[in-house]
Amino acid sequence: MAQTALKLKGSPPVSDWKKWLGVTPFFLFAILFLVLPSLRLVMGSFTNSEGQFTFANLLQLFQEQFILDAYWLSIRISAATAIGGGIFGFLLAYSVTVGGLPKPLRSALITFSGVASNFAGVPLAFSFIATLGRTGFVTALIKNVFGINLYQQTEFDLYSFWGLSLTYMYFQFPLMVLIMAPALDGLKREWREAAENLGASTTQYWLRVALPVLLPSILGSMILLFGNAFGAYATAYALTGGRLGIITIQIGAQIRGDVLHNPGLGYAMAMGMVIIMAISLIGYSWLQKRSERWLR
């Protein structure tokens, strides 16, 4: 017994390479099921149909109009839901944290956000069809109350840009709420009091202190929301049945059958996505670090 305790305290207790044995299974797993598949896509995107190295696939990405359209549509939807979901999610988080609403509403909203941010894919799509589809509940409600037929008198279509965006919002707001609520809690009461004490109004406090302090956090979360929407597949597929050509749906089509007649181009599309996701994750963690420095 004394020996084991000593062994733990003493300088290198196990020799260096043996220590790494303890994490081998994890690394093995990560290589087999995460790194190798990713590398396969990267390598594939630099290989032509004869198996030779090429940049042609990547160059072709920028020449095929429908691929550019797919990326652009995905970027627009992700940006719209990130900004819209971000702003509204922030306001919601604000209302239950420093906004002065009763405490029980806070825990209700946080629980609900936990559920809603994980409620995606097919069930979410069906719910929105039941809500805003041609015979949906809200569609009917608007028709009965305002006399407006959404599908005949307006441009609205659930299976389009705005429809998909509105659906994505259902998991975007809640994610924002979950990230922003702790950040808003990090605002110290003393900052507000110090600002007031120095003569600042509530508006001045928010514009000059609270929002600047929260800004890295808000932007970082929006970037995370962007990535969250950008990588989404199931919800869009279930909602539009593959009719709305966002990038994930195009990649899905390529997996099902080589619709591009060029496997290399499919890999390149996938790699393009990974690059965009990686950029947003880097942006997020950079901003997150900045914000932690302030909100410690």
Binding site: K188, E190, W191, R293
Partner: peptide, 8 residues
């Protein structure tokens, strides 16, 4: 007590 300096 907690300084309450504006971190930004």
């Amino acid at each position: 007590q907690s300084y309450a300096l504006f971190p930004n």
